[in-house]
Design a protein around this nucleic acid. Structure first.
Length: 259
DNA sequence: ATGCCCTATGCTATAGGA
């Protein structure tokens, strides 16, 4: 089973690229972030024609996440607990049916810039809520994938120019410490498990010719529970997608699981 | 230090992204 994550930066603007990539990579499950549209504006039919079941948690203009799955979607949950006043669409969770069910969680973690600001406070609070959720998931002792745009650069080797990010919300010590607390519970960073030392990125800014200069960062991640890590066969980043016409500024990352 | 570029919005300027 292939489970992929892709921050598409506008599902309507990206539709041709996204459909091409789905037909090429053929993921069984695709977790999408930054839809930038409401549920009723989501182009569902185009994905249904490719054989996908669809769940969305949309929002006007910003945020928005979706799950596409060739298997039935069960136990849908669009809420990350811990802040009943949070209206931002950044979480969607489902159980993917099949021979061996896998829980998939699609997340779009807040950017947090500038620092300091209420936006950075929101980011850190969101990561604390995520920690609580992921702790609950561990207790289930089931295969689960918690994936998406984390907006976290974990280590210096995850940026082409780490010094430039020194004071950025994606790389500040407090951000990275919150990331390590997630891993230290017992989650596996799928990409690092397969590629311990690779310098690979998932995001290149549209500005400053960042792609042409390979000035990227690795901020899209797939974390696996121990039961899911046991099933891990491969993890890759579809870097070539960034070179196409009208690309997202992020590229897909995917895991192959033995099911 | 700022903007560069891109998407979306009651749209020809502004907000948000990272």
């Amino acid at each position: 089973m292939i489970v992929a994550s892709f921050n598409i930066n506008g599902v309507r603007a990206r539709l041709p690229r996204l459909l091409e990539w789905l037909q090429d990579r053929k993921p069984d499950v695709a977790l999408l972030q930054e839809l930038k549209c409401q549920d009723q504006a989501f182009p569902a039919e185009q994905f249904e024609d490719l054989g996908y079941n669809i769940a969305t948690n949309g929002q006007k203009s910003f945020n928005g996440v979706a799950i596409l799955s060739k298997y039935p979607l069960e136990d849908l949950n669009p809420v990350l607990d811990g802040d009943s006043g949070d209206t931002q669409a950044r979480w969607l969770e489902a159980v993917v049916g099949g021979t061996r069910p896998v829980r998939v969680c699609c997340l779009y973690l807040p950017n947090g810039n500038p620092v300091p600001s209420p936006k950075y406070d929101y980011k850190l609070a969101w990561m604390e809520r995520l920690h609580s959720k992921m702790s609950d998931l561990l207790a289930l002792e089931e295969p689960a994938v918690v994936a998406g745009d984390y907006n976290v650069i974990p280590q210096p080797e995850d940026a082409a120019k780490p010094e430039r990010w020194k004071n950025d919300a994606l790389y500040l010590p407090e951000t990275r410490a919150a990331w390590r607390r997630l891993l230290n519970m017992g989650y596996t960073d799928a990409f690092r498990a397969v590629h311990p030392t690779a310098r690979s990125f998932t995001f290149w800014d549209y500005q400053r010719r960042a792609w042409q200069r390979d000035d990227g960062i690795r901020i899209d991640h797939m974390l696996l529970t121990p039961q899911c890590a046991d099933m891990l066969k491969d993890c890759q980043i579809d870097r070539n997608v960034r070179a196409q016409e009208k690309p997202s500024d992020h590229v897909p990352i995917w895991v192959e699981l033995n099911t």
